[in-house]
C-alpha cells in the first residue's frame, strides 16, 4: 500500500510539473496569450474582457495557473484554432488510435520477441543465435519511416495486399464509442461484423508490421542478453548440478530471473514506441495523435499543441510508472520501500 502511495505521489508531481510547463507554453508561444490558452479568437473588446475575466488572466500568475489546472481537471481543455472543436473531443478520438497501434505492436513484440530471444539466449554463440542476432540487429537499425515507405511500396502499390491508408474502409460506418477500432466494430450493431473486422485487420497490417519490426528486434536483443547473463550465474550451475532437467531449469530458474531485468527496459522502450507510432501513423494517414500533432504544428494550432503534448506525456508517464510498479511488486529481491522512479 505504501508503495502505491509513493508511486501515486510521484505520478501526480510529474503531472503537475508538466501542467506548469504546458501553462507556460501559452506565454512562450508567439501571439496572444488569451488565444493560445483558450483557442478562441475574441470578436470584440467586450468579448475579450469577458474571456479574460473567465480565465482569470487579469490575476497573478499563480491564480491563473490554479484556475488553468482546475479547468484541465474538469475537462475544459480549450478549443482548436483550426477546427474550432473542443480539444478534448479531438484528442479523445486521436489518442486511442495511437494507443491501439502501439498496443498491437507491443503485443507482437512480446509474443514473438520473448520466445525468440529466449531461444537465442539458450543457444548462445551458435549458428542459430548468430543468425537470430544479426537479423534482429538489421531490423533494429531500420529507420521506421523508411521501413514504412518500403512496406507501402511493396505491399500496397506492387502486390496490392493491404490498403494504403486509414483505419477502415469508408463503406463501414463505425460509430465511435471507445476510440479503439476493433472494439468499436464489435460494439456496432448495424454493420457486418466479420467483414468489417477483416477490413480493419487489413488496414492494421502494414502500420503494425512497420512498428513491430523495431520493437520485436529490440525485444529479442534485450531478452537474449538477459538470458545469457542469467545462464552464467552460479545458481544456474547449482540448479543443474542438482540434476534438474533442462526444462525445469529453464522454467523455474532461468525464465523468471531473465524477465525481471527486461521489464524496466520495456518501460524505456515504450517512449520510443510511441514516437515511432507517431511517425508511422503520419505515413499511413492513421488518424492518431501523431498525425494530429503534426497537422497542429503545420497550422500553428498552439492550443492543440499545448494540450496534445500534455496528453501524450501523461500516457507515457502512466505506462512507465505502471510497469515500474508492476516490476517492483513481482521482483522479490527489490526492496518494497525503495524510492519510486520514472
Amino acid at each position: 500500500m505504501r508503495i502505491l502511495g509513493r508511486f501515486g505521489i510521484l505520478f501526480s508531481l510529474t503531472l503537475l510539473v508538466l501542467a506548469i510547463f504546458s501553462f507556460a507554453l501559452a506565454y512562450l508561444f508567439p501571439g496572444d496569450v488569451l488565444t493560445n490558452l483558450t483557442g478562441i479568437i475574441p470578436q470584440n473588446d467586450a468579448h475579450r474582457e469577458l474571456l479574460i475575466q473567465k480565465h482569470r488572466l487579469d490575476e497573478a500568475y499563480f491564480f491563473q495557473f490554479v484556475h488553468y489546472l482546475s479547468e484541465m481537471l474538469q475537462g475544459n481543455w480549450g478549443y482548436s484554432f483550426v477546427s474550432g472543436l473542443s480539444l478534448k473531443e479531438e484528442i479523445g478520438l486521436a489518442l486511442p488510435a495511437t494507443i491501439e497501434l502501439a498496443f498491437y505492436a507491443m503485443f507482437i513484440a512480446i509474443v514473438i520477441g520473448l520466445p525468440v530471444g529466449c531461444y537465442a539466449g539458450l543457444k548462445s554463440y551458435t549458428a542459430a543465435d548468430y543468425s537470430i542476432n544479426s537479423v534482429s540487429m538489421v531490423g533494429y537499425s531500420f529507420p521506421v519511416f523508411w521501413l514504412a515507405l518500403l512496406f507501402i511500396l511493396l505491399f500496397s502499390l506492387e502486390l496490392n495486399i493491404a490498403p494504403l491508408s486509414g483505419r477502415i474502409s469508408l463503406l463501414f460506418d463505425v460509430p465511435d464509442k471507445t476510440g479503439f477500432i476493433l472494439i468499436d466494430i464489435l460494439l456496432a450493431d448495424n454493420i457486418d461484423t466479420s467483414l468489417a473486422l477483416r477490413d480493419a485487420f487489413h488496414h492494421l497490417l502494414l502500420p503494425t508490421l512497420a512498428l513491430s519490426v523495431i520493437s520485436t528486434a529490440s525485444m529479442i536483443r534485450m531478452t537474449r542478453r538477459s538470458v545469457i547473463d542469467v545462464l552464467n550465474r552460479p545458481y544456474i550451475t547449482a540448479a543443474r548440478s542438482r540434476g534438474l532437467s533442462r526444462w525445469q531449469t529453464f522454467s523455474r530458474h532461468i525464465l523468471r530471473n531473465a524477465l525481471l531485468p527486461v521489464l524496466p527496459l520495456l518501460a524505456i522502450q515504450i517512449t520510443s514506441l510511441i514516437t515511432n507510432a507517431m511517425i508511422v501513423e503520419t505515413l499511413f494517414s492513421w488518424p492518431g495523435i501523431g498525425s494530429w500533432l503534426i497537422q497542429a504544428i503545420y497550422q500553428r494550432d498552439y492550443p492543440a499543441l499545448r494540450v496534445g503534448m500534455l496528453a501524450v506525456a501523461t500516457v507515457v508517464i502512466m505506462l512507465t510508472i505502471t510497469i515500474d510498479l508492476f516490476n517492483r511488486l513481482i521482483d522479490p529481491s527489490r526492496d518494497k520501500y525503495e524510492r519510486a522512479t520514472v
Binding site: 550465474r233 552460479p234 545458481y235 540448479a239 523468471r256 530471473n257 521482483d331
Partner: peptide, 11 residues
C-alpha cells in the same frame, strides 16, 4: 557449492 548466497536463485 562454495558461495551459498549466489548459488541460490534470488527470485
Amino acid at each position: 557449492f562454495q558461495n551459498p548466497g549466489s548459488a541460490l536463485d534470488p527470485s
